[in-house]
Design a protein around this nucleic acid. Sequence first.
DNA 1: CCCTTAAGTTCCTATTTGGAACTTTGATCA
DNA 2: TGATCAAAGTTCCAAATAGGAACTTAAGGG
Lengths: 112, 112
Amino acid sequence: MKWTDLEDNWCPVARTLSVVGDRWTMLILRDCFLGKTRFEEFATSTGATRHIISARLKRLVDMGVLERNAYSERPKRYQYLLTEKGRELAPALIAFRDWGKKHLPVRRRAST
Amino acid sequence: MKWTDLEDNWCPVARTLSVVGDRWTMLILRDCFLGKTRFEEFATSTGATRHIISARLKRLVDMGVLERNAYSERPKRYQYLLTEKGRELAPALIAFRDWGKKHLPVRRRAST
DNA sequence: CCCTTAAGTTCCTATTTGGAACTTTGATCA
DNA sequence: TGATCAAAGTTCCAAATAGGAACTTAAGGG
């Protein structure tokens, strides 16, 4: 079964995952909550390829989690902002942050 | 950048995603919270291939989110149980469930 | 014996990623 | 004027991962 089929799953967790159940997607959302709004910011901050940033942003906009609006005409430049629907994902991000802080301490590199 | 590199990321959200930031992984965990414990249950319930179930369970056990223990000697049969670390992911699952319920209503098939 | 169950593994094809280069639209600057 | 820079994507290709189905191993049951 492909993950896109999860959209119509009986389980609300599965349906949510069909939208945001992807590493890069969640990192983009983290960035949004940290105030980032632009393609370039997402690309450099997450470390994902522009390829993927592009696809993920499209899906998030399609699903109403982000909205894309022009912050400049000539040249046309767009930014991405959380919608109310998107902002309501905060509890999920917070849960992930707290769990990571508690259970996955940063490991030091061998060199230092 | 590959997602496995997120393990050492400065951000706790990213580190968490390196463990559970995958659709099937989260669905397996949902099943665990619903009381399922066996390979076959995860496979049929999530709809993922056994291939993937196998890989995800391995990672979850390696990361201490689940523990694998034998529920039968002769023939050796194993089950997977949430560890305390795993149980503490409940808030994340709950956040996903609530968001899905609120923002992603089940769509009916065209036929019915 | 042959069938069934459970937990995986293997194999092959198809899809998705990662990485880097390229495009478009203008602004800046020397 | 022409060269350079920035932002937001798109395109291309090789490499990695996923999907699907069959196969394996180790019993138990009729």
